[in-house]
Structure formats: structure tokens, C-alpha cells
Amino acid sequence: MMKRLMISLFALSLMSGCGQGGNGEQSAASTNPQAQAGNASGNTEQGAQADAASDTNAASAVMAPDPDAILRTSMQARNGVGLDRLDQDSLQIACSNAEDRAGDQAGKLREAAMAAIEFPEDGNYLGDWKKGEAIAQNGRGMQYSDDPDDPNGGNCYACHELAAGEVAYGTMGPSLRNYGQRGQSEAMLKYTWGKIWNPHAYMVCSHMPRFGEAGILTPDQIRHVMALLLDPASPVNKAE
């Protein structure tokens, strides 16, 4: 049967990830992006002291498990979803820990995430909120049970409260009710777009998917989601 897959000594720097912690995402309705960014960097110093305390002594760890290798023996490709899906990038490796911290790599990862955001060339950030609502409701996309020709959904309702009247919303992320009250300043458009494109630009090791960076949603789809959030006519910004 399957012999346990072990590797003798595993580079522990990855395991002891710690550092720039998840900064509080202040309630959506009342923050402006500058304050947000300021907070994020302020945290790095606190993160640094925490690193030193939690570093485990490399010698004491004898056999560390290798989840990547275990998964590759435990899974099979189906409908075009192959083992390549298991390939981790540096962000995933850095964030794969109980603390959800990226340790000394946090700053580098955040800058890389911010730099790679592709803002709309024509400067047009807002699409059709009705299409945005459909994207937010659609939980499918990129699963081996999905039709690859169908557009991916955003599944925003999985984690966020959005439109008034939609009872079936999740509570993993903050409520986005009345997000439109933040207005449509250049800074707000850039922050909201960047947050959807790659949340790690603002909070490294966030559990929100990188909708733009990972190619889950197209720029057009993100424009529609932006409208759902910011268009005054959107049910997100309506009382009832």
C-alpha cells in the first residue's frame, strides 16, 4: 500500500512563516484607501518582533510532512483539471501555514502583487451592475465539474453580504452593503479594482481569491462587479 511519503529535512524557513499579519479590514463603509495602506505598513514592525519569538529551531524538526507530494499521489486529473493545479507559486508557499503570515517575504510579496495589478487601460472601471450581480451569484468556474466554455463566476455571495434582500450571503468577508457610499474617486476606483484583482496587494495571505491575477474573472467581468459595488443604482447601495 502507500508507504508514508516523507522527506528527511524540510527547509523550515517556510514552516515558521510569521510576520506581517492580516491587517484589520475596517468596516467597508467608512475607510479611505490611504488610511488602509498606511495601516498595512505600520503592521510590519509588529510582525517582525513576532517572527523572532516563533522561529522553531531547525535541528529539532526531524521528519516534516510534504503535503504537495502527498496530494500528488492522492489525486487524479479529471476533465482537464490536472496535477499542474497543485503547482504552488511563492505566495501560496509563503502563506501555507497556521498563522496566515508570510514572514520575512511579506513585504516583497505585497509589492509584487501591487505592481502586477493590470488597471483598465481606457480608465473605464465601471460596467453593468446587473451583470455584476449575476457574477456574484455564480459559484461555478474552473472546477472539473464545470463546462470549461462557460464563463467563471465570482461567487462573491459565498463570503460577502451585498445586495439588500439577498438572504443567502456568507460571513467570511466583511459586509459590502452600501459600498457605493465610498464614492468614485480615482483612489477608490483603484483600491477596489486592485483589491479584486489581487487582494494580497493590500493584505498578504488574504483568503480572498486573486480574481484578476489568477485569471478567474476577465477585466470586463471585474468592471461589472465594480458597478455592483459602486453604482448608486445597484441594489448593494439601496436600502431595500
Binding site: Q137, N138, G139, R140, Q143, G153, N155, Y157, A158, V167, A168
Partner: peptide
């Protein structure tokens, strides 16, 4: 009675 689509939407 309100009927919801249970599950994670996947």
C-alpha cells in the same frame, strides 16, 4: 417558507 440554495454555490 423561504427556500434557499444551500451549500457553497459550487
Amino acid at each position: 417558507t423561504k427556500v434557499t440554495l444551500g451549500g457553497c454555490g459550487g
